[in-house]
């Protein structure tokens, strides 16, 4: 056990939380599932912890005409059970419902998960594929960062130490379909070998693809975004040949490593296969 007790603060508003983080090596705490593991192994030893569990303004899911907003302290279980998410963002619904196990989903928060930045997480590919943006506040500034530009490396983000994720905004786009699928070779609750989030947006005629996105987890130090796959899909009808070309492009861009979930070569193949299946699932077949 450590000799001095960590200072544990329980603010009830965002402004109070931002004031509380001023101390060096202070951290924000969401549900605590990842932080507890890092703390237990002393990979982190903060002198002050600012727990956000009583900050009501960080909780909730709000769907309007043009967008969906999810508060950073909303849990994975709440996202998975939300009817608006299920109706408007099926990929996000699927991803939030397969994270870890029921116990992790009951505690783990969206903001905590994004800040933790483990590249095997299910949520980032599903969210990036539908253009999610992260709203971030510090006591001095406010900014909004596309989730696609949020990750810098394994457990590393563009966040400054005093910045707090307040919410995630997902734009709603007409004629867009989205999906998330994953493959876990070990237990159901494990991180995936590969997870594939995708979205396909048709033009007003409903036949030609106007925009597309393919994003993968588990096959790099950050979520892998295949711009080439998107380009190969735009202008097509989303036929199997086009999907295969996009899936081939994914094979070239991933950077997997050997581990107990598969060899790098195997993961590269699986990334391509699951990119294809994710797109196929988007198109409803």
């Amino acid at each position: 056990m450590q000799s001095t007790e960590t200072e544990f603060l329980v603010p009830t508003s965002v402004s109070e939380a931002l004031e509380s983080i001023s101390k060096e090596d202070a951290i924000f705490l969401g549900g605590g599932t990842s932080t507890a593991l890092l703390y237990k192994t002393r990979l982190i030893e903060p002198s002050r912890v600012v727990w956000l569990g009583n900050v009501g303004e960080l909780k909730g899911i709000f769907a309007s005409d043009g967008e969906v907003k999810i508060g950073s302290m909303t849990t994975a279980a709440e996202i998975a059970a939300n009817r608006d998410i299920a109706r408007l963002l099926p990929g996000v619904c699927t991803a939030s419902g397969v994270i870890g196990n029921a116990r992790v989903r009951a505690m783990a928060t969206l903001g905590g998960a994004l800040a933790h930045a483990d590249p095997r997480q299910d949520m980032p590919p599903a969210l990036i594929a539908v253009g999610a943006e992260v709203s971030v506040k510090s006591s001095l500034s406010t900014r909004r960062i596309p989730l696609a530009e949020f990750y810098e490396g394994f457990l590393e983000t563009v966040l400054d130490p005093d910045e707090l994720i307040t919410e995630v905004t997902i734009p709603l786009v007409a004629n867009r379909r989205s999906a998330y699928i994953r493959y876990t070779p070990t237990s159901e609750g494990d991180y995936p070998t590969v997870g594939a989030g995708s979205s396909v947006t048709f033009g007003s005629d409903g036949k030609i693809i106007e925009a597309a996105s393919v994003v993968l987890c588990g096959v790099g130090s950050v979520p892998i975004i295949s711009n080439q796959a998107s380009q190969l899909l735009v202008g097509t009808t989303g036929d199997d040949a086009a999907l295969r070309r996009a899936a081939e492009a994914v094979r070239e861009i991933v950077e997997p490593q050997d581990d107990e979930r598969g060899s790098a070569a195997y993961k590269r193949e699986m990334a391509s296969i699951f990119a294809f299946r994710s797109l196929k699932s988007c198109l409803g077949s």
């Binding site: 593991l37 029921a102 009951a106």
Partner: peptide, 9 residues
């Protein structure tokens, strides 16, 4: 809700 007490601060 069920919670893993081994990773619950």
């Amino acid at each position: 809700a069920p919670v893993s007490s081994c990773i619950c601060l």
